[in-house]
Design a binder for these strands. Structure first.
Length: 113
DNA sequence: AAACTGACTAATA
DNA sequence: CTATTAGCCAGTT
């Protein structure tokens, strides 16, 4: 179990529909710079995490992409397909090579108060 | 303790 | 554009 998974999940929850955020961005917003890999690790544990905390069911994990704006390669190709469908379902255009334009869709979170 | 492993990333070539 | 390489860091051998 990844130590800061819950903190990452909390940030992922704030990504608005139709926008995306990068792994590094999530880590930074969670106050843990240089932990991009752990964000990915945390998401891969999601199924188990949901078993423990069912409220994570609606976590918008599909809105997380890599620094290149791409859907990161997965062991299970079906997962990539699912992510693609979920994104398209909320209006995000995904290229043939599984990439989205960060220019257009990256989430610019509001300034702190 | 040492090596290995990632849904990662920025810098090079 | 693709491919490598180094850093990264917590969890697991």
């Amino acid at each position: 179990m990844t130590k800061h998974a819950d903190r990452f999940y909390a940030v992922v929850r704030r990504i608005p529909r139709g926008r995306v955020a990068t792994y590094g961005q999530i880590a930074a917003l969670a106050g843990l710079p240089n932990h991009a890999r752990h964000v990915g690790n945390a998401l891969s544990e999601l199924p188990e995490a949901i078993a423990v905390d069912p409220s994570l069911k609606d976590l918008p994990w599909h809105r997380v992409v890599n620094a290149s704006g791409g859907i990161s390669p997965r062991f299970d190709l079906n997962d990539q397909r699912r992510q693609r469908e979920r994104l398209e379902a909320e209006g995000v255009v995904v290229s043939d090579s599984d990439r989205v334009s960060l220019k257009r869709y990256q989430w610019r979170q509001p300034a702190e108060s």
